[in-house]
């Protein structure tokens, strides 16, 4: 189905037609039942998770990613239509480049490859303090190293305390501790900021 038609179909599916009052009419999907039914991850604590992979992408062949783990393990990762791809924001397969870092979760297949349910490309989670603020970028001190955080128009959001995320970054202050979720620019000390969490 062409993309505009597909989106129209999905939109009408969720907005059109009558909905079931889930919590009452669909007992099996009531919140408490859904939580109880939520999969318990069966894996010895501390053990390597076979359904997880991380590393740097070394090659792209069709919908297959070849990658080298940080521990030098070689990975083959299948990307399907059902795989979510995050690279600063939800994006498409063509945005993945050789050299990108990644974390991926999915199902390990018998041939040793991973069928990815989700892949997060270049994602970083930094606890840092703001050392300086310049036009469209933050200078961050992270573990004693300077990281440049780029503000991306229309993408970067700020969360102040427990308030809903906003696009307004003017309440960020030099000297404050922040948590930054962002996309690393490979082989640099720079990240594009997705969300910056700051105290109220």
């Amino acid at each position: 189905m062409p993309q505009p038609d597909r989106r129209r179909f999905l939109t009408s599916a969720v907005l059109g037609g009558s909905a079931v009052a889930g919590a009452t009419a669909l007992g099996s999907l009531a919140p408490e039942a859904a939580f109880a039914a939520a999969p318990k991850i069966k894996l010895d604590p501390g053990a390597l998770d076979p359904n997880f992979a991380e590393g740097r992408i070394t090659g792209i062949s069709g919908s297959l990613l070849k990658a080298s783990g940080s521990d030098r393990t070689l990975h083959r990762i299948h990307i399907t239509d059902g795989t979510s791809i995050w690279k600063l924001h939800p994006t498409t397969f063509d945005q993945i480049k050789v050299g990108d870092g990644f974390y991926a979760r999915g199902v390990r297949l018998p041939d040793g490859s991973l069928a990815a349910d989700a892949i997060w490309v270049n994602i970083v989670n930094l606890d840092a303090s703001i050392a300086a603020i310049e036009t469209a970028r933050l200078h961050l001190d992270h573990n004693g190293k300077r990281v440049i955080g780029h503000v991306v128009g229309g993408r970067t959001a700020a969360v102040y305390g427990s308030a809903p995320a906003v696009a307004d970054l003017t309440r960020l202050q030099v000297g404050r501790h922040v948590k930054v979720i962002g996309a690393w620019r490979p082989d640099t000390n720079e990240v594009d900021i997705a969300t910056v969490y700051s105290g109220a």
């Binding site: 919590a23 979510s84 809903p164």
Partner: peptide, 27 residues
Amino acid sequence: PLESSLQQLLGSTAYRQVSGLLRSGLR
């Protein structure tokens, strides 16, 4: 921001009803 919509989604009953069924992240 998308993050704001995600916060709203994660706090919703609709999300809790189906969270156990979800396999991927936001696609």
